[in-house]
């Protein structure tokens, strides 16, 4: 599998990663080799095998509909890079 420049562009855009030139060229090679390694699974016969998302065949246990979480906004927003009047601020978004 050859990974092209445009593939890296697309992946970086999806994952919101900005790579410098060094990182980009390394990323191409690394990804090609990762994919080459992953290609080993193609040979396994999995016909009729249901994908396994969780190692235990458990099912959901539900939570009673109760308000249990207290919100200390000041404590949470003390962690934030930029807030104003209780809002988190980001550069202007145009919808």
């Amino acid at each position: 599998m050859t990974i092209l420049e445009k593939d890296i562009d697309k992946l970086c855009a999806l994952a919101r990663l900005g790579l410098d030139a060094d990182e980009r060229s390394a990323a191409r090679t690394d990804l090609e080799r990762m994919i080459a390694m992953a290609d080993a699974i193609a040979a396994v016969d999995t016909s009729g095998v249901v994908p396994l998302a969780h190692p235990l065949d458990a099912t959901a246990r539900l939570r009673a509909d109760e308000v249990t979480e207290a919100v200390d906004r000041d404590a949470f927003q003390a962690l934030a890079p930029l807030t104003h009047d209780g809002l988190y601020l980001v550069p202007r978004v145009i919808e």
Binding site: R63, D65, E69, F76, Q77, L87
Partner: peptide, 27 residues
């Protein structure tokens, strides 16, 4: 029309102060 959110125990009532009903899970 639940009392709490779908995946957290934060209040689901309407009209509160900004981010006063966003718990650690919601954040």
């Amino acid at each position: 029309a639940t009392r709490s959110k779908i995946f957290s125990g934060a209040s689901a009532s309407f009209g509160a102060e900004p981010n006063s009903q966003a718990c650690a899970i919601d954040l």
